[in-house]
Design a protein around this nucleic acid. Structure first.
Lengths: 241, 241
DNA sequence: CGGTTGTTTGACGCAGTTCAAGCGGAGTGG
DNA sequence: CCACTCCGCTTGAACTGCGTCAAACAACCG
């Protein structure tokens, strides 16, 4: 089935067709969100779980003085606020980077469903653990990798995930991020991101224009970023790494 | 009950006495680990879940060239590798900072137990989500906070967690970390950590000697680190924040 | 075609790193 | 009980990766 949710969850456990359909059926309503608008906001107490159907989104936290840190990027098929389902409130925001289409499942029916289907619970739990693994890898980057390694690593990660989601082919995928957004996700300044991207282009590893990322030398880029994709727990079929 | 596991899990859901006892009973064997030794190692496929009973531990990832990033600190009551239970393999290591005592529960009986007790599953799921929330906060620190804010924030976090676990009193708790370990957790160099700690001492916020952290000005330290403890999801009773 | 948003460039400054050396306390062995 | 060693802490000086500021440029959009 081509539904992005199916593709993703299939990699995380042995769900029956029935489990999948039951879960998918929870997402009853649909909403479009314009670029730059928040899908879930810090401090809110959401009453639904949000599934991203179309577009790029990002998880972020803002400091009172305007600094902000992007915590993760999300692509179609990602569930955006399981945290809210388990805790009731959000300690961070999720914003639309492109115009996005999202779908909502009410918390109460969702909880009932998970109660009845332990394997479904486990798969969603694993999903949140993969998010954790990505957080950890980003921490390594921000704490211990130089700007160039950090950027190269991020590009590898995004590409690998897009490929697994069927959103990339032939070394090419969407990457609709401004350099400011890249900077906020990497803990760098816009100016520095700009200069390092030029380096990566000059080396011939990538081109990045108009929101399209082309990887010309996957091995080179992987090497530059020290990327090993195991932590993403992608299905073996699409193991670019 | 004074068991550190009970204290912790009680804050994460409405577990029955029975649930708690059943979970605790899973941890059948006990092992002592010397300081500096790994409790779980990256790449391993552990067959048990490890509960920390005594001592400080840290989660970390090492880069091939010797750089390393500490990802989180752990105190008694923390379960160290639920990731391994859900995925089978570890993408990072956990090491003992002090001499530690740990207890092990076999994966297979653990899985059975969770199958039978959905509320227990949910509580452990929440536990991993709190870890995630801490990761996110650390990312904000490493990406967007200056050294002084970062260190102050970490000290607040550790103290708040120790207090909730009954390991702190009167603004004082154990912090058996070398400055090298602090540096590796904050993405800084040892030298800089040293200098910034002196600043914090000079301001009168803290003293830190022989592994004992004394906080003299909680509000001041909180302010310096921009700390708000909500993300830790501690029980309201011990909400220092 | 003017306004807005994103990219690029240059010059300069600083927070934090690196290197190198000295210091102090704790453990060990003679 | 002292000498030796190891490890962690501290200091100073020089260096640099990256940030900041400021301005020009390019692309998009109504």
């Amino acid at each position: 089935m081509s539904d992005p949710l199916y593709l993703k969850l299939a990699a995380l456990g042995r769900l029956t067709e029935d489990d999948l359909r039951a879960l998918r059926a929870q997402f009853t309503t649909t909403r479009d969100v314009a670029a730059g608008i928040d899908i879930v906001r810090e401090g809110e107490r959401p009453s639904t779980v949000v599934l991203l159907l179309k577009g790029f989104a990002c998880r972020y936290k803002a400091l009172p003085d305007g600094r902000r840190q992007i915590l993760s990027f999300h692509i179609p098929g990602d569930i955006l606020d399981l945290h809210g389902l388990l805790f009731g409130d959000m300690d961070h925001s999720v914003g639309a980077i492109q115009p996005c289409r999202v779908s909502m499942a009410p918390h109460d029916t969702m909880r009932e469903l998970l109660e009845r289907r332990p394997e479904l619970s486990r798969v969603l739990w694993r999903d949140t653990l993969v998010d954790s693994a990505v957080f950890r890898e980003w921490m390594v980057g921000m704490g211990r990798r130089h700007a160039l390694e950090r950027i190269a690593h991020l590009l590898c990660e995004v590409y690998a995930r897009c490929e697994a989601a069927g959103l990339a082919k032939l070394g090419q995928c969407d990457l609709p991020l401004t350099q400011a957004e890249l900077a906020d996700s990497l803990g760098l300044s816009v100016v520095h991101v700009n200069r390092v991207l030029q380096q990566l282009r000059a080396t011939g590893f990538i081109t990045l224009r108009r929101g399209i990322l082309r990887i010309h030398d996957w091995e080179g880029l992987k090497g530059a970023g020290g990327f090993h994709g195991g932590y993403l727990h992608l299905p073996a079929s699409s193991q670019v790494a």
